[in-house]
C-alpha cells in the first residue's frame, strides 16, 4: 500500500436548502454532510458506516460531484475536483466510478447489457467496432457473466447478476477509484459474499481503491482496511478495521457494534440505542450524539467535541477522550 492518498476529502459539506420561497430564499437548511474529512489510498478500502440518514450516500455522491458539494475540497491524485470545469471533470470521471445499491433502478431498462457496459467506451472514443465488442465481452467475463448476455436487457437478470452488470459498467473505463454505495446491501447473503469476493479480486487485480458505503458491519470486516463511522453528517471515529472492532472508543461506535447481530445465539442480547436519529434540520447542540449517549458528560450538550488522535491510526470526536489522548490533530482524521 502506497503512502500518498489517492483521494483526499477535507471539510466536505452539503447543505440542502429547505423549501425555497417566492424569491428563492430558503426557510431552513438540512446539513446532510457537515464538515467531513477522510482520505483513501491507492488499492485501499475505506468503509463509511452509519445509520440510515447520516449522510453516507450524500458524501459518496458529493465526492463524485453527482451532488454539488456546498463547500470543502476533494482532491484526486493531486487535482482539486471541485474546481474542475465541465470538460476536465468529464475526463476525470473516467478514473472515479460508482456502484449503486439498487440493482434494479441502476440499469437503464431500455438498453442492452452490452450497451450499458460499452456506451462510455464508445462515446468517449476509447474503443469501437470489433474492439469494443471484445472489451465488453472481456469485462463481462471478468465480473463472472457470460459474454453472450450482452444482447440481453437488464430485466432478464437476477439481482446478483444485475449488480455484476453495474460493476462491469463501472470497470469499463478502467477507473482507479470506485464508490460502492451500499453495493451489496440489496443482495441475498450468499450472493453478497460472491459480490464481495468479486470486488476484492478486482481490487487486487487493478489496484482499485474503494470508498465502501454500508450500514452492515459484518460486510465491513470482510472488505475494509479502515473504517470511518458517521453520525448526523459528521465522522465521529476512524480506525483500522481490526482496531475499531476490538477497541471502539466513541460511545456511538460501541453502540453500533453492540447492535450488530452475531451468528451466535448464546451471546447476550445487544443493548439497543435509545431514541431515533435526530433531524438534521435541527441537530442537537454540542455533540450531536449526546441525547442518545449513555455516557454523556455535563458539557456534551454545549461544546462540540474536537478531533482527537488516540493512536497513530485511530481518531475520535468525543469529550470522553479529551484528556486521555495524545495531542489532537484537528486536520487529519486518521494517521
Amino acid at each position: 500500500m502506497s503512502t500518498a492518498a489517492l483521494l483526499e476529502v477535507r471539510d466536505l459539506a452539503k447543505h440542502f436548502a429547505l423549501r425555497r420561497g417566492l424569491l428563492g430564499r430558503p426557510s431552513g437548511w438540512i446539513k446532510a454532510v457537515d464538515g467531513v474529512s477522510f482520505h483513501v489510498r491507492e488499492g485501499e478500502t475505506l468503509a463509511l458506516v452509519g445509520e440510515s440518514g447520516c449522510g453516507k450516500t450524500t458524501t459518496g455522491r458529493a465526492v463524485l460531484r453527482l451532488i454539488e458539494p456546498s463547500s470543502g475540497s476533494v482532491t484526486f491524485d493531486g487535482q482539486e475536483l471541485l474546481k474542475l470545469n465541465a470538460g476536465d471533470l468529464q475526463r476525470m470521471r473516467r478514473d472515479i466510478q460508482i456502484v449503486f445499491q439498487d440493482p434494479y433502478s441502476s440499469l437503464n431498462p431500455r438498453m442492452t447489457v452490452g450497451n450499458i457496459v460499452g456506451e462510455a467506451l464508445r462515446v468517449h472514443g476509447i474503443a469501437r467496432g470489433a474492439e469494443l465488442n471484445e472489451r465488453v465481452a472481456h469485462i463481462l467475463e471478468r465480473v463472472g457473466l457470460s459474454p453472450d448476455f450482452r444482447h440481453r436487457y437488464a430485466h432478464e437478470f437476477s439481482g446478483g447478476q444485475r449488480q455484476r452488470v453495474g460493476i462491469a459498467r463501472a470497470l469499463a473505463m478502467a477507473p482507479r477509484f470506485i464508490v460502492c454505495d451500499e453495493a451489496v446491501s440489496a443482495l441475498d447473503v450468499s450472493i453478497q459474499a460472491q459480490v464481495i469476493n468479486l470486488l476484492k479480486d478486482l481490487q487486487d487485480e487493478y489496484r482499485l481503491a474503494y470508498l465502501f458505503i454500508t450500514h452492515d458491519l459484518n460486510v465491513v470486516r470482510h472488505i475494509a482496511q479502515r473504517v470511518a463511522v458517521m453520525y448526523l453528517g459528521r465522522i465521529v471515529e476512524t480506525a483500522g478495521t481490526d482496531e475499531l472492532f476490538d477497541n471502539p472508543r466513541h460511545p456511538y461506535t460501541r453502540a453500533l457494534l453492540a447492535a450488530n447481530p452475531l451468528p451466535d445465539p448464546s451471546s447476550p442480547r445487544p443493548r439497543a440505542l435509545r431514541g431515533d436519529v435526530p433531524s438534521p434540520l435541527t441537530p442537537p447542540p454540542g455533540c450531536a450524539f449526546h441525547p442518545r449517549c449513555a455516557e454523556a458528560l455535563a458539557h456534551c450538550d454545549r461544546q462540540t467535541p474536537t478531533w482527537i488522535q488516540i493512536a497513530r491510526r485511530h481518531g475520535v470526536a468525543c469529550h470522553l477522550h479529551q484528556n486521555t489522548s495524545r495531542q489532537g490533530d484537528d486536520e487529519i482524521p486518521d494517521g
Binding site: 470521471r93 441502476s106 456506451e119 468517449h124
Partner: peptide, 14 residues
C-alpha cells in the same frame, strides 16, 4: 434522480 441516470453522469456522458 434515478441511479442509471446518475451512473450515466458519473461515466462523463454528455
Amino acid at each position: 434522480e434515478q441511479d442509471f441516470v446518475l451512473a450515466a453522469r458519473a461515466l462523463g456522458l454528455p
